[in-house]
Design a protein around this nucleic acid. Structure first.
Length: 275
DNA sequence: CGAGGTACCTGACAGC
DNA sequence: TGCTGTCAGGTACCTC
């Protein structure tokens, strides 16, 4: 979510108010051909809901999901020309080049363009009308930074027999928490990721709410976490320098961490700090 | 109904 | 060196 928020803020600065004048689709699995219905529409807003990026015009929407390796590039006209000269000299496409894993190009009315790139081809862009967007938004839970403490505790207490980490990542309850931030929040709240919700006190859940919001706010300020593939439009995030447990060997208290599987995902936690 | 497991997809990396 | 296996991870879809 902090990664998506970072990308949204950059897109707002770069393409808000522009019109898309031409779309080239390289990979129809990743970019739905219907996105062409957005042609000639002025981009009126760019927002995030959960982990989704919503680009809006008048009742027409482009909805993008980066999953793990989705990426936007924005290229100015001058850069493009430079790129053409360069590509003759450099046979191999370098890392960080918009031509790598290119799935689609969106040309704008100011001569610049943006691209959508996807290494694993999990993410993508879809066109939606007003009704489709409504249905999509209805499927998402609360925004993690907007939800109040009492509501947060109440929502989780509705699933007493569930594992806390699984529910924390359930987009229908809270939309936006992925594997990294779930693990980090649980560490800071001193909760074992395998703990059943009924075994967790309301005070502990309230602490989880506090720590989660603190971590997400800091991660947004640091432009997200860069591990292996994620980069925002203008470089890398910095939150990886603030991780406590994710892919670590020792926790901040110098205890050995364990790696287990929870919800089918690798999960790091400290058996001594997290009970 | 909720919960848990798995497929999707590609690249990085370890081990032989 | 080149092969094989494992890991990474959000979500849709399946089964129990």
């Amino acid at each position: 979510m902090p990664e998506v928020e970072t990308v949204v803020r950059q897109l707002q600065r770069k393409i808000l108010g522009r019109k898309i004048v031409k779309i080239d689709i390289n990979d129809a699995k990743v970019i739905d051909k219907n996105v062409k219905q957005f042609l000639r529409q002025p981009i009126k807003s760019i927002e995030r809901r959960g982990k989704a990026i919503i680009i809006s015009s008048d009742e027409k929407y482009l909805v993008a999901h980066l999953r793990m390796t989705g990426h936007f590039y924005h290229v100015e006209r001058e850069e493009e020309n430079k790129g053409k000269e360069k590509i003759k000299k450099i046979k191999k496409i370098k890392e960080g080049d918009y031509r790598k894993y290119l799935c689609g190009i969106f040309y704008l009315d100011d001569g610049s363009f943006f691209t959508f790139n996807e290494i694993r081809r999990f993410g993508g862009m879809r066109y939606m009308n007003k009704r489709q967007l409504q249905l999509f938004l209805q499927s998402l839970g609360k925004e993690p930074l907007n939800i109040k403490k009492e509501e947060f505790v109440g929502l989780f207490k509705k699933y007493p027999s569930s594992t806390i980490k699984n529910k924390l990542m359930d987009q229908r309850i809270i939309a936006g928490i992925g594997n990294i931030y779930a693990q980090e929040a649980l560490y800071h709240a001193k909760i074992n990721p395998q703990r059943k919700i009924q075994e967790i006190s309301k005070e502990k859940l309230a602490l989880l709410h506090t720590k989660l919001q603190k971590i997400l706010t800091l991660a947004i300020r640091k432009n997200g976490t860069t591990v292996s593939n994620y980069n925002h439009l203008d470089g890398k995030g910095d939150f990886q320098d603030f991780l406590a447990v994710y892919q670590k060997v020792f926790c901040p208290q110098k205890h050995s961490l364990k790696r287990i599987i929870v919800g089918g995902r690798g999960t790091y936690y400290c058996p001594r700090c997290q009970r």
